[in-house]
Simulated scan of single mutants.
Amino acid sequence: MTVVLFAALSSIAFGGSDFCGGLASRRFATLKVLVVAAPATLIIDLAAWHAFGGTWSVSAAAWGGISGAAYAVGFGLLYWCLANGPIIVLSPVSATVSALIPVAAGLSFGETLTSVGLAGTVIAIVAVFLLGLSGDESREVSTRPTMLTLGAAIGAGAAVALQLICLDRAPHESGMAPIVAGSAVATLLVWTAVPLVRARIGSDGRLRDWSAAIAAGVLDSLATIAFLLAVRAGDLAVVAVITALYPAGTIVLARLVLRETVSRVQFGGLLTAGLAVTLLALSS
């Protein structure tokens, strides 16, 4: 039950992070959002390292560093596509990819699923798919993604999957060290990209807009920490599937804040997601 709890917390935090990051990217360039979000993630990760400790090793630093590079790419693509397309559709597409790849990786690592766990996994993937089906068009943004935004969502899902797999591969005795290494590498890559693309990081924008970028970073850190704690106590295949249900939170926020339309099918996806989590909890 502890595994499912941490995985569910990770899912909720990832959903909030995606929404805040996508919202901020609608007001600023995606790179600007990451310039603020990545250091915010690093600060929280450092606080977690101080609180929970961690043992450094070449393996911990390497796996953490690769996860950080995947984070920078994945969330850059994700925030961009959510800023330029319907959050209510693209977030589930990304989540589906980020679930399927870790499940396949976990099974290849020798993990097994009980019949109940397998049923929960299948239902969870169906739930994510249903969450991505749009109904009527929103008043504020078309629910039909372009091929470019759809490709970015798929690429983001693959990068996030790599991030999760790397965190799973890091030594269990390393504590919070891998996530600190990851957020440090991500921050370095993002800030290095600023002069390379000659982006100007100005102070324009309202406080609320910058707060959304900071919130995205903080929530992403909390999601990653919860994921790490979950995967240390359970299997990657199960934890990744529960984590991938994060579009449920993103969709609820998109509906409440942006007034994006939630179709009956998507509402069914929310209910299906609840069933999937229940089954996965019973299997753990």
Rank of each mutant, 00 (worst) to 15 (best):
G110D: 03
F14H: 11
L256S: 09
V194W: 02
R259E: 12
L275T: 10
D168A: 05
V97N: 05
T41L: 09
P171S: 01
L256M: 11
V33D: 00
L130N: 01
G182S: 02
G53L: 01
V218S: 01
A8H: 07
D220G: 15
T121N: 12
R259W: 11
G54H: 05
I214H: 04
L100G: 12
P195H: 06
V241M: 02
W191I: 06
T261G: 07
A159Q: 02
L162K: 09
G151W: 15
V122E: 11
G22I: 02
A193D: 03
S203H: 14
A181T: 04
A124H: 10
D18R: 06
E260V: 10
R206A: 13
F227G: 08
A193P: 04
V89K: 05
A240I: 02
A161F: 09
L82H: 00
T243Q: 13
I44E: 04
V180T: 02
T146V: 06
W210G: 04
I101M: 08
F267G: 14
A61Q: 14
V4T: 15
V73W: 02
S11M: 09
A95Y: 04
F6D: 03
I44Q: 08
G151K: 09
I242A: 00
V36N: 00
L189R: 02
A13V: 05
L245V: 04
L42R: 03
G106Y: 03
S17W: 07
V3C: 10
V93F: 11
V197S: 12
I179R: 11
L253I: 03
L107A: 04
W63N: 13
A61H: 12
I43D: 09
S11E: 04
L150G: 13
A213S: 10
I88G: 08
D18T: 04
V4Q: 11
L253P: 09
G106Q: 03
S108M: 14
L77Q: 09
G202D: 14
T261V: 15
A193V: 05
A226D: 07
A276H: 01
A119G: 15
T272S: 08
V35P: 00
Y71V: 13
L207A: 12
W191R: 01
E173N: 11
V89R: 06
P178I: 06
P86M: 06
V73I: 13
L130D: 01
G54V: 04
K32D: 09
F109M: 13
G274N: 05
G76Q: 01
T243F: 13
T121P: 08
A99I: 02
I225L: 12
E137Y: 10
T146D: 07
A38G: 06
